[in-house]
Design a protein around this nucleic acid. Sequence first.
DNA 1: AACTCGGGGTA
DNA 2: TACCCAGAGTT
Length: 425
Amino acid sequence: MTAEDHKNEGKIDRGRYAEERRVQEKMAAVEAEDSKTYFSRELLIWYDRSKRDLPWRRHRDPYFIWVSEIMLQQTRVDTVIPYFNRFIERFPTIRDLAEAPQEDVVKMWEGLGYYSRARNLQAAAQQIVELHGGQMPSEREHVFALKGVGPYTAGAILSIAFNRPEPAVDGNVLRVLSRYFLIEDDIAKPKTRIMMEKMIPELIPEGRASDFNQALMELGALICTPKSPHCLICPVMEHCRGRIEGRERDLPVKTKAKKPRPEQRLAVLLEGSGERAGRVLVRRRPNTGLLAGMWELPHVAAGGEDLGLDAAQLGELLEDRGLSWSPMSPYMTAEHTFSHIHWTMRVLIAREEPEALAQLAAESGVPYEAAVPEAAELDGAEGIANDGADEEWRWISREDMSAIAFPNLFLNILNKYFSGEGEQE
DNA sequence: AACTCGGGGTA
DNA sequence: TACCCAGAGTT
């Protein structure tokens, strides 16, 4: 063997080593890429075959997509469907929504929860009319700037309506990707969502952003469900690391929420007398905070110890309105759980005493009729009439309930009352 | 990062 | 019960 041969042999060895390493790297890349392309391919095949027929999937109208996405925030598909259909029927275009009285928009949202969504939706509709001629913009910057549109909804509108390869990472996507790629990061942390968002674009097959993002969520909703995922019928089970390693029930990792704090409240169902017979007194909540702008029975915080003490405070509330009343008696108790508060609402019932009211009004020099607003004001509601009011009171009849929005708690109480179920405790 | 903001379905 | 749902806005 010559010196030259030794030299060549060394070269060959180094070359062979480098070659083997390139092959290994390539195979690892192919394997990794395979797992991803497999996922995207099988997911789309499954979706094309088994996607649900949903109202907002019948057209690719950005307005429909947008409304559905806002309604679907923290809300199940089955719950949203009837609301969506009624909403689109009442407000067929963005301009119709922008020009509607706010009361009407909130009324259409009644029972759906998270009522600021309704307010923001209309505000955004007005943004779109003013800035974009009533057409949903298709640039990320403009979509994201709309009120009530965050990272998920922006991505959903851009991908589903405009087929842009943008991530739309919701709870479903976090769960599906956590399991498929065996990601143990806490999905409650924003950092995890951002990481998933970075993974999405390379998973989206060319030209299929709309279907892909919807397929991902559809899989989470139908197959890769939170408690017991249906791995045996999952279209991507073969390469799902979570399932392969038997960890699908441990994923995703998520810090658990605190339980709602208990609050005792005391409400009054005050029945009108004389000209206001058949009506009850309600008030409108402030435009910010819990149940913003919704109507309710008057109520106060209750200590829970002494009912008489709490009732006295409730009485003061009425006195401030220039009202007097017959003795209050227990009517019913209702429970209601929000995300962070649990209400126990005791409801008292009483009847207005017009004589005393007239006397009070005479003493204070306030005309009887002016002491309390009449329900007739309902007719003259011109949209912005109530927008700035921090608090408003009305006497309403059963019929008036179709015009103003109540949270479910009071809806149930009032429906029971007006349907004549005199449920005394 | 933690809290606020509804209501209901599901195991 | 406990958990979660096609999350966003505020602090």
